[in-house]
Amino acid sequence: MKRIILVTLLCMTGLSVKVCGQLQKGTKHWAGTVNLTGIHTHRKDPPGAPSGSSYFAVYPSVQAGWFTRNNRMIGVGLGSSLYFLHNKSELASQTYRAGLNNLSLSLSPFIRQYKSLSAKWALFLHSNANFSYLRVTNFQDSVKDFETGYNVGLQVNPGISYWFSSRFALESDVNLLSLGLKYQHLQDVNSVNFNSGITTGLSNYFLLRASWYLQ
């Protein structure tokens, strides 16, 4: 018990000679999250000409990292967003289909610096570069065409972690401060996007990531 209190106190002072167990050099880190939404509609409107539409979107992401020194991790994240929108209608026994498939794949190497608050809580600053491949497919009956594009960006944001056990934690990004720069090329459109935010107001929405720390 005394040892836990001592380690906690040391972690809290930030002058820690001894880092919290999970953040030591050599620790491996895995994390992932997913969220999805689906909406399916079937209409008999007008009668004799039924139609339907389906929307489905899923956003999975994983990341892996290694502590190169105490409290500092380098790693790489892999994320994807998949978005499907399909419409189908029948008129005079003919079926018409149209829709859109949207795919993006991104690779983001990152550096993350941790600061322990206690044995269970830590803050981190996550800086990453992001390279995404985008592909948009439009289709109408048998006619299909697609366009590809890419975007590159830099992003810095803080986050917070809470350890449920020595190996398992939940973490979330926090919007107190963020900095981002993005360049995108898609469908003959080039766009540059810069955002920065410094706020003391917390957003009321935190997407959680499950994470594992393995020694």
Partner: peptide, 21 residues
């Protein structure tokens, strides 16, 4: 008096925390 019908199914998996005001 013509009647039209539609059915909708919506589902979501969203592991996020919301803090109420």
């Amino acid at each position: 008096q013509s009647t039209f019908k539609s059915k909708n199914l919506t589902y979501q998996f969203l592991p996020a925390i919301t803090f109420p005001s």
